[in-house]
Design a binder for these strands. Structure first.
Length: 266
DNA sequence: AAATCATGCAACCGCCTACAA
DNA sequence: GTTGTAGGCGGTTGCATGATT
């Protein structure tokens, strides 16, 4: 492992890597990630390959903004299951756990912040996160969801095989750009007024309890890009609808390791 | 027009679980 | 029953980009 670890690539994936990964997943299925990482010649870990596939390259991915229906579903399922993102994602075909997690974090935090402002417009109070937590916990004020962000990135208008062709033409995907900007993350947290995720969740929970209209007032959303159709099997386990989980199983290409091994890849 | 701030999201990290040896 | 390994998951970080000053 040691020497291999040093050789491992990290960071944004290149177009070439994507193409390579897709073709190898096409050949061997989306199960044996370590194996795929090795035979593909990608200097990536199996984990990294899996993540890239699941969150970005998977043909079943739905691009575009969450629909109001999806938002409602997320809220509903989160209230039921908490931060079980992958579980929630399974109920939202085409959405990844990462996407839902990011969505929840950004949109719900935004909502919490707006509520916070509504409750305590005074800057001095607003900058005090602990004070905020105690305040919100005692204020059942109902706000509508401030989800009016309708801007879209061209990146999300592509996907699947369609994306693979776009890849070669150039695109706006920041993942392929060289890192040059200054990191602002630290300042973000200060502005949030939250010291930890716990605080955020606490507030979000309160918001959910307070706000029954959470999913119905999401503002207007632009159209959702249809799921891309790739030229190979989509019969896989990632985007199953309710009740399918028990029916469909295994790899979409080689249900077991034996098949791959038969081809001399073990 | 340039600088700074704010936001969205891709990708990494570390832990946990399942399973094979 | 134990151990090692791979895959899966949730939390977090860091970068690119849009918005604002």
């Amino acid at each position: 492992m040691g020497q291999e670890d040093e050789m491992m690539r990290k960071g944004p994936w290149t177009e070439q890597e994507d193409v390579q990964l897709v073709s190898f997943v096409n050949m061997f299925g989306d199960r044996r990630w370590d194996f795929i990482a090795k035979v593909s010649g990608l200097k990536r870990s199996g984990k990294s390959c899996r993540l890239r596939w699941v969150n970005y390259l998977h043909p079943g991915l739905k691009r575009g903004k969450m629909t109001p229906q999806e938002e409602r579903r997320i809220v509903e399922l989160h209230s039921k299951w908490g931060n079980r993102w992958s579980r929630i994602a399974r109920k939202l075909p085409g959405r990844t756990d990462n996407e839902i997690k990011n969505y929840w974090r950004t949109h719900m935090r935004k909502k919490a912040q707006e509520k916070k402002r509504a409750i305590s417009p005074s800057p001095s109070t607003a900058s005090n996160s602990s004070a905020y937590s105690s305040i919100t916990s005692t204020n059942p004020i109902v706000n509508s969801m401030p989800m009016t962000d309708t801007k879209e990135r061209s990146f999300y208008d592509t996907g699947g095989l369609e994306m693979m062709t776009m890849i070669t033409k150039g695109r706006s995907n920041k993942s392929y750009k060289t890192a040059t900007s200054v990191n602002n993350s630290s300042t973000r947290e200060e502005h949030d007024g939250y010291d930890s995720m716990d605080e955020i969740w606490k507030d979000i929970d309160l918001l959910e309890l307070d706000d029954g209209s959470i999913g119905g007032v999401c503002g207007t959303y632009s159209e959702m890009a249809p799921s891309p159709i790739w030229d190979y099997s989509l019969n896989n386990t990632l985007w199953m609808i309710d009740g399918q989980e028990e029916i469909i199983g295994g790899s979409m290409f080689f249900p077991d390791r034996q098949q791959a091994s038969n081809l001399g890849y073990n």
